Amino acid sequence: MLDLSELFHPDTFLNALRQETARLMSCSMDSLKFVASWRGQITDAKLQVKVGGLQLEGCVFDGNRLAESHHDSPSVSAVPACYMAWIPQSAMGSYSPDECISLPVYSSAERQRVVTNVQLPCAGDHDTWIQSGAALFLKQQ
């Protein structure tokens, strides 16, 4: 399992994964989209990585759905490991657009640099998660 926080440039790693996927599929990098799955491996992916070490702020996530934080919940919580991959734009991905929200993954809790965006399954109105300030960041060493 890969911990993105252990990489010097996680965004460079994800771009290399995109380049290698495009090479294997004999397609342009622009014809690929980035997806994440907490349901298991991504069926349409030629290459995928299992990623751990992400932290979540603004809500909680059990691997199935986002949920609002309780008054006694920690402000930051660990997120279960997921699979990440680049797949064809035409492929479905792991979640339908109405059952997930795209959250930024920041390089640190200070939220100064976005590494990528990942989709997390959620219920209810997407504005709830935006207003809560929900975001992921790499585990601090």
Score class of each variant (00 low, 15 high):
M29H: 04
M29T: 15
D30I: 01
S31Y: 05
S31A: 12
S31K: 08
K33L: 05
F34D: 09
F34M: 05
F34S: 11
V35T: 09
W38R: 12
W38Q: 03
W38G: 02
W38Y: 08
R39V: 01
G40Y: 00
G40W: 00
I42D: 05
I42S: 03
T43P: 04
D44M: 07
K46T: 10
K46S: 11
L47R: 14
Q48I: 15
V49A: 15
V49M: 10
K50N: 08
K50Y: 04
K50Q: 06
K50F: 02
K50P: 03
K50T: 10
K50S: 09
V51A: 11
G52T: 06
G52R: 10
G52M: 07
G52W: 00
G52V: 00
G53T: 04
G53N: 02
G53R: 01
G53Q: 03
L54R: 01
L54W: 04
Q55P: 00
E57I: 12
E57W: 00
E57Y: 02
C59P: 07
C59T: 07
V60Y: 01
V60G: 14
F61N: 08
F61H: 06
F61S: 13
D62A: 04
D62H: 05
D62E: 00
G63M: 12
G63K: 07
G63Q: 10
N64T: 14
N64P: 06
N64R: 13
R65C: 15
L66C: 10
L66G: 05
L66P: 01
A67Q: 04
A67D: 10
H70F: 13
H70L: 15
H71A: 10
D72Y: 09
D72K: 13
D72T: 13
D72R: 15
S73Y: 03
S73I: 06
